[in-house]
């Protein structure tokens, strides 16, 4: 904390930069090592773990592409995350629109209903959920995961979207009403276009944890062809447990897409991921 003291002048500033810098190295170095190791052969990893790879050979990636299910997992994760977020945004925005733009009997009750959903840890209801999905034939089925993720993330989505929709001036709505637009048209043509930035934030807020989750697939998915990326990695790790280069390549491949999007869209990512915690 002494680094906070401005009176120590340059020394304080230096200490601050050293502290931040060391932390940044600690955060980034492991990720860089993971990426670099993915180009190395097993022998290289043992003999010269810290040096740059001798060549940026894509052999390890080729193994993953040709011999493992990782590409398949990747597609499954994309489908699950994409559809869940799509349904979430449509259904969540609809509900939030009703709650934020209309006065009606029961508005407060329904708002509380959604709010209370925020406090229920669905993981602890995994047993009944399992039986329920089994009855519906949704175990070992991507649709089952989509249902769970959508339901689980709905309260937060409704909560975030309600906040944004409330901030829109009601005169816009009145104006469109005077212009003869139907309620549906007002929502779709006037109001929703104005909250697209909020939808991006809510989308990221939901997409990242869904993409990364492996708890629900662990329980609901058994067949290799329906495994998601995060879950599939565990199987892949069992299979290639001694081929370290391939393991690192698998991790890198799994981390790459989300990292690239993050680096390009970091501002929105940070806003999105912290959206639930910042009022």
């Amino acid at each position: 904390m002494s680094t906070m003291n401005k009176k120590s002048g340059d020394l304080g500033t230096w200490l601050m930069h050293i502290f931040l810098g060391v932390n940044a190295v600690i955060m980034l170095y492991p990720i860089i090592m993971m990426a670099l190791s993915s180009f190395k052969t097993n022998k290289e990893i043992f003999s010269s773990p810290f040096s740059l790879p001798q060549s940026f050979s894509l052999d390890n990636f080729a193994v993953i592409w040709n011999e493992t299910n990782v590409p398949r997992y990747f597609i499954n994760s994309t489908i699950v995350t994409g559809l869940s977020v799509l349904v979430l945004l449509v259904v969540g925005t609809m509900a939030a629109y009703a709650l934020s733009r209309y006065k009606f009997k029961g508005n407060i009750m329904i708002s509380l209903f959604f709010l209370s959903g925020l406090m229920l840890p669905l993981r602890l209801a995994i047993i009944p959920l399992f039986i329920q999905l089994k009855t519906l034939g949704l175990v070992d089925n991507l649709l089952g995961l989509i249902c769970i993720y959508t339901a689980m993330s709905l309260p937060a989505t409704v909560f975030i979207m309600t906040g944004f929709l409330r901030s829109l001036p009601s005169e816009l709505e009145d104006s469109a009403r005077m212009d003869g637009a139907s309620e549906f048209r007002i929502m779709v043509e006037i109001m929703v276009p104005l909250i697209t930035p909020a939808m991006v934030i809510a989308g990221i807020y939901n997409a990242v944890p869904i993409w990364n989750d492996f708890f629900f697939p662990l329980i609901f998915i058994q067949s290799p062809e329906w495994k998601t990326l995060a879950q599939g990695l565990t199987a892949f790790f069992g299979e290639y447990s001694i081929n370290y280069g391939v393991l690192y390549a698998g991790l890198t491949l799994a981390a790459l897409p989300i990292m690239l999007v993050f680096i390009v869209q970091s501002r929105r990512f940070i806003a999105g991921m912290t959206a639930g915690a910042i009022k």
Binding site: E171, D174, S175, R177, M178, G180, A181
Partner: peptide, 15 residues
């Protein structure tokens, strides 16, 4: 409904 009354309105915030 508003639009079928043959009126037009100018709002305070312009909207």
């Amino acid at each position: 409904p508003p639009a079928r009354r043959g009126l037009a309105m100018v709002f305070q915030s312009y909207a």
